[in-house]
């Protein structure tokens, strides 16, 4: 048990300071070391945490934002993403009526040759992708028209972006490295003109993904936030 000698060099002093959280620098490093190696020290820290913990009772509860839980779910079930990808491919052929109609309309739109189109050798075929997550496999529908270099994304409902965040669109080719296609404007139907070198990334089988990023897009050039929807680009 804790000794009662109030000497300034009380061996338990460091444990108390560690539990209180005031330590810095070398003392903090020493406390961390002891915490990892000395069961007595660790026990004393635990006792001090217990002593101090009731101070937290006074802190008023605040309801967290709705988005907090979905992030936890995503993180405790990373394999769900894999399942959802497989599931989405299966769903491809048996989508809900509304989205099917949407997809059909869009496919038609893509397949009808436009008059202003120059008569070129067989153009690369348009492709489509269903973007979603494990809970909602069909959040967005993406259509890639290589003839116009235009990527059209339709959402069942406008995707709400939290303030000070942006949705950013990514292509993940076979090498697994996400490349940004740009920050998505808001709206139910979005058209993005893709320029080289990204055009050549949009091939059959690549993944399209939408992540939540700080306003203006990822500061690092790679996705930093949660992925709200992803899907595989397939032949239309």
């Amino acid at each position: 048990m804790t000794g009662s000698k109030p000497s300034p060099d009380d061996p338990d002093r460091l444990a108390a300071e560690f539990a209180l959280g005031v330590l810095e620098g070398d003392e903090l490093a020493e406390a961390r070391r002891l915490d990892g190696s000395d069961p007595e020290f660790r026990a004393e820290v635990a006792r001090w945490s217990g002593r101090l913990a009731p101070m937290l009772d006074d802190v008023a509860p605040v309801q967290p934002p709705d988005s907090a839980w979905s992030g936890i779910e995503t993180r405790i079930a990373p394999s769900a993403t894999v399942h959802s990808l497989t599931r989405r491919l299966r769903l491809w052929k048996g989508m809900t009526a509304g989205v099917s109609a949407l997809a059909a309309a869009l496919a038609l739109f893509l397949l009808v040759p436009r008059p202003q189109q120059q008569p070129l050798p067989p153009a690369p075929a348009p492709m489509v992708a269903m973007l979603g997550d494990a809970q909602a496999p069909a959040k967005m529908f993406a259509a890639w028209d290589p003839r116009t270099s235009q990527l059209t994304i339709m959402s069942g409902a406008a995707q709400a972006t939290p303030p000070s965040r942006s949705h950013e669109l990514w292509v993940i080719p076979a090498d697994g490295k996400p490349r940004s296609l740009g920050v998505m404007p808001s709206g139910k139907t979005i058209r993005i003109r893709i320029i080289q070198p990204m055009v050549s990334q949009l091939a059959k089988g690549v993944t399209l993904a939408v992540s939540v990023e700080p306003a203006g897009g990822s500061p690092t050039g790679a996705p930093t936030g949660p992925v709200i929807a992803s899907g595989t680009l397939e032949s239309a």
């Binding site: 988005s67 995503t74 993403t81 990808l85 939290p162 993940i172 936030g225 949660p226 992925v227 595989t232």
Partner: peptide, 17 residues
């Protein structure tokens, strides 16, 4: 591909539920 999606799967800020 799934590996990549996993590394990107940070806490969503969108309200999914």
């Amino acid at each position: 591909r799934s590996e990549v999606v996993q590394t990107m799967a940070h806490p969503p800020a969108g309200s999914l539920f």
